[in-house]
């Protein structure tokens, strides 16, 4: 795999003095799904907007398919489809005409078969003659996707594609994204739904305060940063921890019925066996025992918190 998008030291300070990006470098591999995670105002949309030509960078460079986004913008942009975060759509025009318009704008000759394929894939074919303003919110969002796909892009940017979208449509959209990926389209999506990144992405980048805190394969990210917890439920409340258990740094719940032990699941020694031995020695009776893997959400919150501590 080779990088289809190469971002180097990209920075952006807006006219009002707000610095949205502080030197981001990133290679996006051809054919992958990359999720950019970050809280609101982290710089995700600015990053996408620069690559797509909506915002002028203050410093740094970006190439798409080897074409610089400033000097070779025609070739670079022709490869990109963009689905913006906000639903922005010509209200009085018919669905099919807005989609045809997008294809033409990107320099492609008319191809009704392709337009039909895209509209059918997005369940919009029956609505093709409707005016955009007559569509529901979910359908409007699909029209935006149809517009982005109308010119057969090799890279698709989805800026918060499922914000405010119901569960069914979200599932459908995920399905579509997977299908596009299988056709070789590189997909970059921003989200602040961790669930979405966890479900979809091959790699995950975390952005906060204009910095890329980390980019990692999803599985490895969970693997590396995944802490596990062992939860011990006791038959009788424990008023205080026996000193023999002090070395395990257990957390006792307020009612004294639960003890939590945190450990690194990938370490050579988890300390679990020793702990259970010590628990038996201390004469505690166990009612139940569960382990819990930290979710991407925990990982994400930890990263963002750490990133803020450093700055």
């Amino acid at each position: 795999m080779s990088a289809i998008i190469s971002i180097r030291d990209l920075a952006k300070t807006y006219g009002d003095g707000f610095t949205a990006l502080k030197g981001v470098s990133l290679d996006i591999e051809e054919g992958e799904i990359l999720a950019l995670l970050g809280p609101n105002g982290a710089g995700k949309t600015t990053l996408i907007s620069i690559i797509c030509g909506l915002v002028t960078p203050s410093a740094g460079s970006v190439t798409v398919g080897g074409h610089d986004i400033l000097t070779g913008y025609r070739a670079a942009r022709a490869m990109i489809g963009l689905v913006p975060q906000e639903i922005t759509i010509e209200p009085f025009e018919q669905v099919i005409n807005t989609v045809r318009f997008s294809r033409g704008l990107f320099g492609k000759g008319s191809d009704e078969a392709h337009i039909e394929r895209v509209l059918r894939a997005l369940s919009l074919w029956d609505k093709r003659k409707s005016k955009n303003q007559a569509l529901s919110g979910g359908m409007k969002r699909r029209v935006l996707i149809a517009k982005a796909l109308s010119h057969e892009p090799r890279v698709l940017f989805l800026d918060e594609p499922t914000a405010g979208v119901d569960v069914t449509l979200r599932r459908e959209m995920w399905e579509l994204v997977r299908q596009l990926r299988s056709e070789g389209v590189t997909i970059i999506l921003t989200t602040h739904y961790i669930e979405e990144a966890e479900e979809m992405a091959d790699r995950i980048g975390v952005i906060d305060h204009g910095r890329l805190l980390l980019v990692e394969e999803k599985a490895r990210l969970l693997h590396q940063l995944g802490r596990k917890e062992l939860l011990l439920e006791l038959t009788e409340p424990l008023p205080e921890l026996p000193s023999s258990l002090a070395e395990f740094a257990l957390q006792r719940s307020e009612d004294g019925l639960h003890l939590t032990y945190e450990f690194d699941a990938h370490a050579e020694r988890t300390g679990m066996t020793r702990l259970l031995g010590a628990v038996a020695e201390a004469g505690l009776q166990l009612k139940d025992l569960t382990t819990r893997q930290s979710s991407l959400e925990d990982v994400f919150l930890k990263l963002v918190a750490d990133g803020r501590d450093e700055t």
Binding site: L54, Y73, R74, L82, P84, I89, L105, G107, K147
Partner: peptide, 17 residues
């Protein structure tokens, strides 16, 4: 109008000058 409703994003992101 495209500026007002936001569809200008498409003009800016298209491979056109």
């Amino acid at each position: 109008f495209p500026k007002f409703i936001g569809t200008i994003y498409e003009l800016l992101s298209a491979p056109i000058s």
